[in-house]
């Protein structure tokens, strides 16, 4: 579906995407990364808005830049607003479908259907200036799906949606995925991606940090230090004990908590009670990294920043 070979995009001296190599088969993927990580640049490269400084981009087997045939099969919902205030949602979506090559009548029918799918039937003939942010998001999604593309690309589609709107949009997108169509969905919030797919790409600093399912990333993390936080009566003494026992790579004391990065979490959990009993130290709270994607994400980010 997408193939990027050593893709680099430079804005003058600033790197947007750095030596990105990736092959994605048809399916649903979440593109996860903090703000400024290069998600939008990557989407702009995939949709042909930008030309890579180095490397090759192929989407559905074709280069995306100035490629009318590809644009017939692609639906894109950008992160920016960019709607015409004085025009109705229906007129705007119909106009964009006419640009897809539909006749006015076909475009009107497609617009009506898509706006209905995202719950905008009641408001579709009102000017966009009267829409709430959530309604504008839904209208944006409608323009992307109205021509029934094979591959849908969404950039932060949940922005500005209330919980009900998020639920409705999630339902629409789950239905989309169930139909066997492909989706690439960018967000800086992991739970948004988790609600739709377990396959994700983690991007930071213009580089691909990890890709695959949560389990793939778990496997990748084996052997990397785990963080354990302990509330204790004497954090300095406990830190010294753990360093003496060679079970901690690094320690940090803050607000009565001792945070330990350990390459041997199993040994730590097994032997800690004995060490506490022997030293007379007390531990009242203990937190360790859970298995959620959020923790994986946090660990990968720390790894990328050299903190692990």
């Amino acid at each position: 579906m997408i193939e990027l070979r050593n893709v680099t995009k430079l804005y003058g001296k600033v790197i947007g995407v750095n030596d990105f190599t990736l092959t994605l088969e048809p399916g649903a993927y979440g593109l996860l990364g903090p703000n400024g990580s290069g998600k939008s640049t990557l989407l702009n490269l995939i949709t042909g808005q930008l030309r890579p400084t180095l490397g090759t981009v192929l989407v559905l087997g074709e280069p995306p830049r100035n490629n009318p045939e590809l644009f017939r099969r692609l639906g894109y919902c950008p992160g920016s607003e960019g709607l015409y205030a004085g025009v109705s949602g229906f007129d705007w979506v119909r106009y964009l479908q006419q640009l897809q090559g539909m006749t006015s009548h076909e475009a009107g029918e497609a617009a009506e259907k898509a706006l209905g799918l995202v719950g905008m039937t009641q408001a579709m003939h009102r000017p966009i200036s009267s829409y709430s942010r959530g309604m504008r998001q839904r209208t944006k999604l409608a323009q992307a799906i109205a021509h029934d593309p094979d591959f849908l690309i969404l950039d932060e589609p949940f922005n500005g949606l209330d919980p009900v709107g998020r639920h409705e949009l999630t339902t629409v997108l789950r239905h989309w995925i169930r139909q066997g169509k492909s989706l690439l969905f960018a967000s800086h919030l992991l739970h948004e991606i988790e609600s739709l797919t377990q396959s994700f790409l983690l991007i930071c600093g213009g580089r691909l940090l990890a890709s695959g399912t949560a389990q793939d990333v778990h496997d990748m993390m084996v052997g990397l230090p785990n963080e354990v936080a302990l509330r204790t009566s004497d954090p300095h003494a406990l830190a010294a004990l753990l360093l003496r026992e060679h079970v901690a790579d690094s320690v940090q004391i803050k607000d009565g908590f001792l945070t330990v990065a350990t390459p041997q979490p199993g040994r730590l959990f097994e032997q800690l009670p004995g060490w506490l009993k022997a030293s007379g130290l007390e531990v009242s709270e203990m937190h360790s990294a859970d298995d959620s994607l959020q923790e994986l994400f946090n660990s990968l980010m720390k790894l990328h920043r050299g903190e692990l």
Partner: peptide, 17 residues
């Protein structure tokens, strides 16, 4: 300026049209 350009250029020959 309106940031609507991207919606137009992901259409077949959208920019030229």
């Amino acid at each position: 300026e309106r940031r609507s350009w991207v919606y137009l250029t992901v259409r077949p020959n959208g920019g030229t049209a």
